[in-house]
């Protein structure tokens, strides 16, 4: 099942990632890691990569990039790893506690203030 207009056939995904299967950067891309372009697209660049660079002139979350490109999150992560390795993007990873521990009270307070101001 797939939304109309979405083409996520294995062949397309394979082409996009050039068959590479693994993205294992030191700090993996979280759904809400904010990505910022460090340079603009170059001529002849793979269109998805160019689209990411244009989209990320200002910070943009991984999940927003995936939605915009209409690609699964895991494929988007592979493309982002490439751009990161090439120095074309930087990644602002979430500060919130990893795993199952609770976030610290400072963050919680900031979230509360933000929500109350809505």
């Amino acid at each position: 099942m797939s939304r109309p207009g979405r083409d996520d056939s294995p062949d397309r995904l394979y082409t996009l990632t050039q068959g590479r299967s693994r993205s294992a950067p030191d700090a993996p891309f979280d759904l809400v890691t904010l990505v910022v372009a460090e340079s603009g697209p170059t001529p002849g660049m793979q269109s998805e990569l160019a689209a990411i660079l244009r989209m990320c002139e200002l910070p943009t979350a991984v999940v927003e990039i995936a939605a915009e490109l209409r690609l699964p999150v895991s494929i988007t992560r592979i493309l982002l790893s490439d751009l990161l390795d090439a120095g074309r993007i930087s990644a602002r990873h979430p500060r919130a506690a990893a795993g199952h521990s609770l976030p610290d009270p400072d963050i919680l307070e900031q979230v509360l203030v933000g929500l109350r101001n809505l």
């Binding site: 995904l13 068959g19 299967s21 999940v63 939605a67 699964p72 895991s74 992560r77 592979i78």
Partner: peptide
């Protein structure tokens, strides 16, 4: 609200862990 998706295999592993194309196929 935007919509997106994630792909997984039956074993609960992603295509990024199953050998790419083979995993997809």
């Amino acid at each position: 609200p935007l919509n997106t998706e994630e792909t997984m295999t039956q074993a609960g592993r992603g295509i990024d862990e199953t050998g790419g194309l083979d995993g997809l196929r």
